[in-house]
Design a protein around this nucleic acid. Structure first.
Lengths: 96, 96
DNA sequence: AGGATAATTCGATAACCATTGAACTAATTA
DNA sequence: TAATTAGTTCAATGGTTATCGAATTATCCT
């Protein structure tokens, strides 16, 4: 499999990512996805303390920020971490 | 000069920093401070497009997140970037 | 077909927060 | 002392957004 590289991020992309990870719950979700342990959305809700609607909302935000890919397969959604985008974000933050 | 090191950040500290840099204007301010070019608050307002009250508010947020130090000297405030905290934040983000 | 499961969309609500004018404190200067 | 300057605090406002129930779509299973 290839990997779409992301070398530089625009300021708007930076802002979107920063905003996306600013929410603690969203950051936790991103962590879970990045660990590769989970694939389907339902596994993100460990203890039923968050509604499916909210999860769906957060996933959409993460996707629109470019941090994850969502690939539907049957009735489940495969979530994958865009490590290249994340790295590009870190590179940018490292400049200051 | 010594440097107070910051090795690890709690989850609350991570959340606070993420929230602090999520605001574009605050991130821009942090960038300016990190560049070392500016010291007094007034220099942050390049084109008078932001009120003193708002600047003061953002600086307080950055300070409470641990990202900057504010040292009053006479009637001006000396702003300095906590590079150690920033690095600790980057280290944490780099884990995923 | 009918029922269960996975996830999304919609609408409403409540909380959060960036922004500012005005009033204020403290320090410098005339 | 009076005036000016740097910055803060307060209270109000408007916009954003996290959250969820309910309804919906699509898929899988019997």
């Amino acid at each position: 499999m290839s990997a779409v590289r992301k070398s530089r991020l625009s300021q708007d992309e930076i802002d979107a990512i920063a905003r996306a990870v600013a929410d603690p719950r969203r950051f936790a979700i991103l962590q879970q996805i990045s660990s590769g342990a989970v694939t389907p959305c339902s596994k993100l809700n460990e203890h039923n303390c968050i509604s499916p609607a909210t999860i769906s909302h957060h996933l959409k935000e993460l996707q629109e920020a470019g941090l994850i890919d969502i690939a539907r397969e049957g009735r489940t959604a495969n979530l994958s971490f865009r490590r290249d985008v994340w790295q590009a974000y870190l590179d940018r933050l490292g400049q200051l």
